Simulated scan of single mutants.
Amino acid sequence: MTRTIDFYFDFISPFSYLAQLKLPEIARKTGCDLEYWPIDIPEAKIAAGNYGPSNREVAPKIKVMMADLNRWARKYDIPLRFPASFTCSDWNCATLYAREQGKAKAFVAAAYNRIWGQGIDPSDREELRACAKEAGLDPDGLITFVDSPLGQNEYRKVRSQAYKRGVFGAPLMFVDDEVFWGNDRLDFLEEYLSRQK
């Protein structure tokens, strides 16, 4: 039976940007399926009982986080630019449309490249439409899904299921009963999967 890596992410998360670059290769090498599940980080924190401020509101923490992100970008040899806004809910919801079309991997990669690689403004619907096209999706169909009660209900359902499972932030990867939090735990994830083959 093929095993599954459940990848929980939010497009506002730069560390999820880093994780999604490596996860497809880890899944390929270990013979796993990779499933993409969008969440809402502020909502996930509250669901887990964490009412603290966001990283952006804690000056010493954001300073260290920025340094770490720049180190990771150099290590992975990738561009890293903070997006013009953090309005990513529509992009998260759009992932579910991409999943239905069998294009989740392509959409997530293209979206992260735009949001954190190029620093676009995720609130710009034209950017979302362009991303859909780049991922081989129908832009009109994607926007219609995101704006529909069906799409919004599906996104609420996925988030609710994630929080019941214990998702409290992102990136977070589940395999079996094991949980791996953060892009810096990907070595542990790969090690675990390799041992279980």
Score class of each variant (00 low, 15 high):
Thr4Cys: 14
Ile5Asn: 08
Asp10Ala: 08
Ser13Pro: 08
Pro14Gln: 07
Pro14Met: 04
Ser16Gly: 09
Tyr17Met: 05
Ala19Pro: 11
Leu23Pro: 09
Ile26Asp: 05
Ala27Asn: 11
Cys32Phe: 03
Cys32Pro: 06
Tyr36Thr: 07
Trp37Gly: 04
Trp37Glu: 11
Pro38His: 04
Pro38Ile: 01
Tyr51Asn: 06
Tyr51Glu: 00
Pro53Glu: 00
Ser54Val: 00
Asn55Val: 04
Arg56Ile: 06
Val58His: 03
Pro60Leu: 01
Val64Met: 07
Met66Leu: 01
Met66Tyr: 01
Met66Ile: 00
Asp68His: 04
Trp72Lys: 14
Ala73Arg: 12
Arg74Met: 09
Ile78Thr: 12
Pro79Met: 03
Cys88Met: 11
Asn92Phe: 04
Ala98Cys: 04
Gly102Pro: 10
Ala104Trp: 11
Ala111Lys: 12
Ala111Gln: 14
Ile115Pro: 15
Gly117Val: 04
Gln118Ile: 08
Arg125Trp: 13
Arg125Leu: 12
Glu126Lys: 12
Glu127Ser: 15
Arg129Tyr: 06
Ala130Ile: 02
Ala132Thr: 01
Gly136Val: 03
Ile143Leu: 06
Ile143His: 06
Phe145Thr: 00
Phe145Arg: 02
Asp147Tyr: 10
Leu150Asn: 03
Arg159Leu: 04
Arg165Asp: 04
Gly166Thr: 01
Val167Phe: 05
Gly169Asp: 03
Met173Glu: 05
Asp177Ser: 09
Glu178Gly: 10
Glu178Ala: 13
Leu193Thr: 10
Arg195Tyr: 14
